[in-house]
């Protein structure tokens, strides 16, 4: 299988604090990966470096053999945990913005997804609830035909109904040409999506492996394993 993202000895320090400590990680095309760990474990930092928002202190990360930059931003679809849309936007403005600025954005798919997510295009982003905002962000991120999807805590603070819709959308977006990297500490809900998992704690990968193999080898679900490890 072809590697699409590769991190080698990747470290990130915030003053004295090590957010990532010599992380080696690679992901292949056509698989869904989970970066799992408690809050503050370094999951978001890793995704932000891959998205080109943070610079590594040491080590290297490449996506499609390029360091994060203008090219990788054109093939990486990033969903941050925070509400990053401009406050002046209505939902339709956000869709138009993505259509205008990402060549791989499929506006038709986005509009269909908005219907599925029960979102109205005329609504202002500032009036959306957390669940609605989560659904909108996911719609925007998954309506791109990217090589890599980076989803940072897509289920955090989301109500159970929205969670189901989000998981369905992620599954629908699966393609053999794309890789999906999901960070979460809500393992129970995303476990069924994952092909491969990385357990990240205090900036280090303490356990990794094929999800099915880990379940068989340890005789427990990934969720239970997560509770045991942390």
């Amino acid at each position: 299988m072809e590697q699409i993202l590769k991190a080698t000895q990747l470290s990130k320090y915030f003053y004295q604090k090590k957010a990532l400590d010599k992380v080696d990680l690679s992901i292949e095309k056509g698989k869904i990966y989970g970066i799992l760990g408690p809050n503050g474990g370094g999951k978001s930092t890793f995704l932000k470096i891959a998205a080109g928002l943070l610079k590594p202190s040491q080590g290297e990360i490449t996506i499609d053999n390029e360091k994060p930059g203008t090219y990788t931003k054109s093939i990486v679809s990033y969903l941050p945990e925070i509400n990053y849309l401009y406050k002046w936007m209505k939902i339709k403005d956000a869709v138009n913005f993505f259509k205008d600025l990402y060549a791989d954005f499929n506006a038709e798919k986005a509009r269909e997804s908005l219907k599925f997510m029960e979102l109205e295009e005329e609504e202002k982003v500032t009036t959306l609830s957390k669940g609605m905002m989560g659904r909108l962000k996911l719609t925007l991120a998954l309506s791109r035909k990217s090589k890599v999807y980076l989803l940072d805590e897509p289920l955090n603070g989301i109500d159970p109904i929205s969670r189901e819709k989000i998981i369905t959308s992620i599954l629908d977006s699966y393609s053999e040409e794309a890789s999906i990297l999901i960070s979460s500490h809500l393992i129970y809900y995303i476990e069924k999506l994952l092909d491969y998992v990385f357990f990240l704690s205090e900036g280090r990968i303490i356990l990794s492996g094929d999800a099915e193999e880990l379940r068989n080898k340890r005789g427990m679900s990934i969720d239970k394993l997560f509770q045991e490890v942390f």
Binding site: T70, P80, Y84, Y86
Partner: peptide
């Protein structure tokens, strides 16, 4: 501000 996540992930120089 948080909108920087949007501005600096678009593929522009």
């Amino acid at each position: 501000e948080e909108c920087g996540y949007l501005t600096f992930t678009i593929p522009n120089k």
